[in-house]
Amino acid sequence: MIALKIIQVGNSAGVVLPKEALIELGVKKGDTLYLTKAPDGSMRVAPHDERVARQIEAFEEVGRQYRDTLRILAK
């Protein structure tokens, strides 16, 4: 486990990832990371994956186009 400290970054807060974490994630300064909530309630950090980003974008578009239909089906 790697402990991270929350620091002030302008009007926001941020964390500094140690070199070991960057290597493990396969990312470098300037790359995009995603923070997601897992089914068990924990949070996970993952590097940007263009394939996944396209899938999410497609899902969101379908949600916008068929919002009313999806609402009815959810009942």
Rank of each mutant, 00 (worst) to 15 (best):
T69D: 05
L33P: 01
I56G: 00
A74L: 08
V16A: 10
P47C: 07
K5G: 04
G63T: 00
K75P: 01
L25D: 04
K19T: 01
V27M: 06
R71I: 09
L35R: 08
A13M: 06
G26V: 06
R44N: 10
I23E: 11
Y34S: 07
D49W: 01
A38W: 04
K19F: 00
T36I: 13
A58S: 05
E50Q: 09
H48T: 02
G30H: 04
I2G: 03
G41R: 10
D31A: 09
V62Y: 09
M43H: 10
Q65E: 14
V52L: 12
T32F: 08
P39I: 12
A58E: 14
L73T: 00
L35A: 11
A74G: 13
N11W: 01
A74D: 08
A46E: 11
I72Q: 06
D31W: 03
A53E: 12
Q8R: 15
T32N: 15
K19Y: 02
G41F: 09
H48S: 09
S12H: 11
D31E: 14
E61F: 03
I23Q: 11
E57Y: 00
G63A: 08
A46F: 01
E60L: 13
Q8W: 00
A3T: 12
A38M: 12
G63E: 05
Y66D: 05
L33M: 10
D31Y: 01
K29Y: 02
E57H: 02
V27S: 10
L70K: 09
T69L: 12
N11E: 12
R67A: 15
L33V: 15
